[in-house]
Design a protein around this nucleic acid. Structure first.
Lengths: 332, 332
DNA sequence: AATGTCAAGGAAATCGATTGCCTAGAAGCT
DNA sequence: AGCTTCTAGGCAATCGATTTCCTTGACATT
């Protein structure tokens, strides 16, 4: 463990004052090029890295943003985080990840921690897209909600347009010639299930069509998908495609249909939602799915946060389009 | 956006000097109880939160550790992170998560960032258990490797004992009466595949047994599992159980065997590895699997890091036992 | 030669909290 | 009364980098 190198050591080696060294390294002030170079070489030679605490104490900026995931870190938070890191990394900013585990106490605790660390901004995210109570009032730093949205319309939220995703799914099924479409999804009270179902119904209505059966609500699991296959077939409804509310449901449904002797996509075409790699690739056949572009949402949220940090006011709800990824389960 | 409250405002409100206020809030120095209380109430009233930068500049401690995942954040890093957060959160420390995405440049960049932020310590982790080159030499802060290990034996590493996991898997299969056991796993050059295969072979040898077929190496995918089912059956080998190197392989294998008319576990019992919820629950029947206790590894790594931060020397390779989680795929 | 201009770099204040040292006053002792 | 001892709390240095003035000297201008 060496002692950390400070700027005064660099300055001493270069034969200048600390102030001059600081200017040389930060490209400020009026210095002769050779002086600047001498300082830079000295810094290089000593392996100097500026003490972030000292810098932020002086400048008031920490080049750090906090990310609070209200639900446990997982499948949704990770792409959001990666997207945010992409956007922030370009600006040399780092991300503090805090997992509140769905516990309001932990959430407030982390909020205090982030404020004490004087982060430049905060991104709030979670597992559900449903609107949530704002994390705090009159915070001293800008806040952006990603994936979830804030119930306060003045807050800035970036969310996926789930109805748009449903529209693309149905549009795709119509485009490959299916007309008798069913919809199997998660719990009826779940915001995402509602949005996706509504999007599907509306899209069909615009074509003068309707779902082949009432929406089948259940849970977000493969087991429910398998069970739904049985229900669907037992109704005797003449279905030639199913739009599923999640990839897990779709995968379960695919297995259920196979077990019952139906062939996908010949007899029934299938579209999932989430474009979750292990599900879409593991399914047989590979699953067409709707991608919410979580990385893009994370990136956009981070960009808006950066704008807010730089004083450009941002607010309002922004819904981003989805993308359909066609695979074998809807091949013509 | 309020202006941040400083300790001098608290001191002024309480009618004491800043030094006294600091002592009051940190429980140091000799103060009258009523003075202490007066300061605490003033801090409370103003919503004072100490500026972490100023504090760490003075004390040299940041109460922050960095976590560098060499591979992309994912299924393995998350439980490790959660475990580490558990252990560190108790000490009021936060975690900086850095995703180096398997890129040495990014890794060194993040290392510099963490050092500039004067983190108290660093946890290095990744997707593979194989030993890796140390992340740096003579770093000014302690480093602990979690899940992966450092090639330098003097470094501190906490890893799963994968051979132990294999031993438990085979032991379990033997306990439920299976004797003709095959092993299907990932790429032969993959460290985990080697450790697990060796563990399986050794455990059988200790009982005077051997694998029913040579180890089937492939890749870590469901597709390979399905393919392996065909290979296994076509050899005509009389197999009554398969230990798989991962849950994905096991799930694929289960499907392949089902398709070929074999019943699990009656005809062939199945054990996976990783205990990955979506795989073990999605399989039919639910999959018995080996759990590496990643959270425990993260927690242990964090505890060792804390010890190192507090000056207690820690080093050496620590292998932690696995746990077998029995499910329907090996039910008697 | 006297004055003005400008480039280059130094000196010192500053950010906010901590902490070692010091002092004023109270209490105890002879 | 005079001395010591202790307690409570203030003062000021400190951490490391940034930044705002200043100063110095070189050069140009008249």
């Amino acid at each position: 463990m060496d002692r950390a190198v400070t700027i005064s050591q660099v300055a001493a080696l270069a034969g200048v004052s600390t102030g001059t060294a600081s200017k040389a390294l930060n490209g400020r002030g009026a210095l002769r090029p050779e002086t600047r170079l001498r300082v830079q070489q000295a810094a290089e030679q000593l392996g100097f890295v500026a003490n972030a605490a000292a810098r932020s104490l002086q400048t008031g900026r920490t080049y750090t943003v906090g990310m609070i995931t209200t639900d446990s870190i997982g499948r949704f938070s990770i792409p959001l985080l990666i997207g945010a890191e992409d956007a922030l990394g370009a600006g040399q900013m780092s991300v503090f990840l805090c997992d509140a585990r769905d516990d309001p106490i932990r959430e407030q605790y982390y909020l205090r921690t982030l404020l004490s660390r004087k982060v430049d901004g905060i991104i709030v995210t979670g597992r559900r897209t449903q609107a949530r109570q704002p994390i705090g009032r009159d915070l001293p730093v800008p806040v952006v909600y990603a994936f979830i949205s804030s119930a306060d319309g003045r807050d800035c939220s970036v969310v996926p347009d789930e109805a748009d995703g449903a529209r693309r799914a149905i549009g795709h099924l119509l485009a490959v010639g299916r007309r008798r479409i069913a919809h199997v999804t998660g719990p009826e009270h779940h915001h995402s299930a509602q949005m996706r179902a509504a999007g599907a119904v509306d899209t069909l209505a615009a074509e003068g069509l309707r779902l082949a059966t009432p929406v089948l609500y259940g849970e977000w699991s493969e087991a429910w998908g398998r069970q739904a296959a049985g229900i669907l077939l037992s109704t005797g409804a003449d279905v030639d495609a199913v739009f599923c509310g999640s990839d897990q449901v779709a995968r379960g449904l695919a297995e259920g249909l196979r077990d019952a002797g139906r062939e996908i996509p010949r007899d029934i075409a299938l579209v999932g939602f989430d474009n979750w790699d292990v599900m879409v690739d593991g399914s047989r056949p590979a699953l067409t799915s709707v991608d919410m572009d979580l990385e893009g949402i994370g990136r956009t949220a981070a960009e808006m946060l950066l704008a807010a940090i730089n004083g450009e006011p941002v607010h309002g709800h922004q819904a981003r389009p989805c993308r359909l990824v066609p695979r074998a389960s809807t091949a013509v």
